[in-house]
Design a protein around this nucleic acid. Sequence first.
DNA 1: GTATTTTTGTTCGCATAGAAACCAATAACC
DNA 2: GGTTATTGGTTTCTATGCGAACAAAAATAC
Lengths: 170, 170
Amino acid sequence: MDTTEILITIRRIVRSINLESKKIQKEYGVSIPQLLCLSYLHASRNFQSTQGEIRRFLNLNSSTTSGIIDRLENKGCLARLPKQGDKRVVNIALTSKGSELLKQVPPLLHDRLSERLQSLPSIKLQQIQESLVTLVHILDIEQVEASPMLTIEEPIEETKKEISSKSQEI
Amino acid sequence: MDTTEILITIRRIVRSINLESKKIQKEYGVSIPQLLCLSYLHASRNFQSTQGEIRRFLNLNSSTTSGIIDRLENKGCLARLPKQGDKRVVNIALTSKGSELLKQVPPLLHDRLSERLQSLPSIKLQQIQESLVTLVHILDIEQVEASPMLTIEEPIEETKKEISSKSQEI
DNA sequence: GTATTTTTGTTCGCATAGAAACCAATAACC
DNA sequence: GGTTATTGGTTTCTATGCGAACAAAAATAC
């Protein structure tokens, strides 16, 4: 497996995750980013948070977060409330409908996948973890540069690119 | 790092790839899926292929492929031609504009990423490959089920799920 | 030859994702 | 207090991605 195949494999992993998200959405009516958002609210103080906090938690762009919140609001899972003291900020509150939905979904999801991952030898699992972190570093060039104190890394050039060539259908 | 963190890491990898795609699009006017499509045409006989072949190569849904081809057609990078003998099939032909664009983009991209991957110890690279393949198997549950002759795999239940919980902003 | 099934690719609808533009509110500066 | 800079979130636009529906064409069955 060379560079190209690694990239192709990543694309396939991404696709699987997206397909899974679609299945969950069909079955439960919420997507994974939506679920992540609801989970965050559930774990927040007073089951509330701000759009900015959710955005940072999800590590997404502001407009994307706004869209996710819109759709959850339309579903009745959360509500937008004004925040005392700062009129720019919108408080996002989990509704009981959202809370109920959370009770149905996460345990099923988490258990199944954990099951599979934990059936692996722990050495294997460790490998996966390290490999993913390595990939993050390779791809997250900006992050590495932003923290020169992290570790000894080889000098990495500014602009990183990604390539593609053939991929084979399975 | 447990299951949740693996999932979170995957999400971060996905994000990096998407951000990279955005940069490339801004700089060269084409996205990575579009580049993949053009590359495939370039390597095809007579610089032509069918929508179905491109779809299988990209491993994408038909409507997605149609959209990608639409946008490349609008850019003048490819053309839709009828196929002799089967009126359902559309031949997709790379234009010289598309060919020229390919000359500018891919070498830069591929080289940079290869460079970084190949600067890793070969053991590390091997780990990454194996880990990705393992993840593919875990996520590609349907593939494994569809091919019971592949290898000895533990019995895997039908519906797999994915979970999420906290992720931290870096 | 006719009826049915399968194939091919397009359209539509929905969601995610980012960039850019925007505006109101707040903070910082003088 | 007035001016400038920053912040927070929304809107608009573009692209990717999937599923469902669809129509035409081809393949298959009788």
